[in-house]
Amino acid sequence: MSNVLIVCEVKNAEPKKSTLELLSKGKEIAGALGGSLSAVAIGSGLGGFADKVAPYGAAKVYVADGAAEYSTEGFTKIIADAVAKDGAGVVLFSAGSQGKDLAPRLAARLEAAFATDCVDIGVDGGKVTVKRPVFAGKAFAHIAMEGSPAVVGLRPNSFPVAEPAGGTAETVALPADFGDVKAKVVEVVAGESSRPDLTEAERIVSGGRAMKEAANFKILEELADVIGATVGASRAAVDSGYAPQSRQVGQTGKTVNPVLYMAFGISGAIQHLAGMRTSKVIVAVNKDPEAPIFQKADYGIVADLFEVVPKMTEEFKKLLAEG
């Protein structure tokens, strides 16, 4: 028997979608291990937070209310406290930018078994096993978590969110006390985009070298606005200065996992494919019918992207207006 503890990510006092994914999968794992599902949330304005996660199966929610900013060490301390109180044998994180910072730190503190960016998790003979992409998605490693607790990060968008049900959760208040902190966040500089991060985006429109200049990304922004997508770029586009580094998709950029990935003017170098190959549906638009991206695309269009993008924006607008 082993309890499962979910580490919530909170935005404007609401659980992020990735947190609901964790709860949905976590409930299944807790069931297989014969334990209960709990959650821990750190932030501010969290009164009533338990009611927001209870419908997804959390029976107990540890809440540290009053933490104004993020702190690796502070959050680690509070989560370690929750793990101890809960007696959790499995701790689940979302492997976004916060989870990547926090989960290994917690694993080291707890002397835990660790794996992150997992696209599958299961229980085999009472032991947690995970599947995670390695070599930029060219292969998978299947890892058995021998130690306890097991700290596991799940790749965003890899698990469906269950239908919310009834149910209530007990709130356990934890002090929002970071303790002695050696690294402190003193400022947060806003990004250029209010859209979801590439790693968590459900839809992505990406531009390559064929975008020709930075200003031309405007047409991708317009398309992205219509379908609620985040804008990405190939390494060639980033290196040419057409897009900022934070938008790069690929082996030396972000690994993405959207339901829809649209590649405009991207030839499909192996390093780019590595970063987006798990996308559910891939659309490629390229003037060159021989571009390798067409071998990976579900739908390809051989045409000039500067003609296709505005036409697509217009067609999506029409379609979405129909409801």
Partner: peptide
């Protein structure tokens, strides 16, 4: 504390459909 037990390769994506020209949008 963790052990690699198995390795596997991803399924190749089946080639999809390719359309010609902007009129296919």
């Amino acid at each position: 504390k963790a052990k690699l037990v198995k390795c596997s390769l991803p399924a190749e994506r089946a080639a999809g459909r390719v359309f010609e020209g902007v009129e296919s949008v």
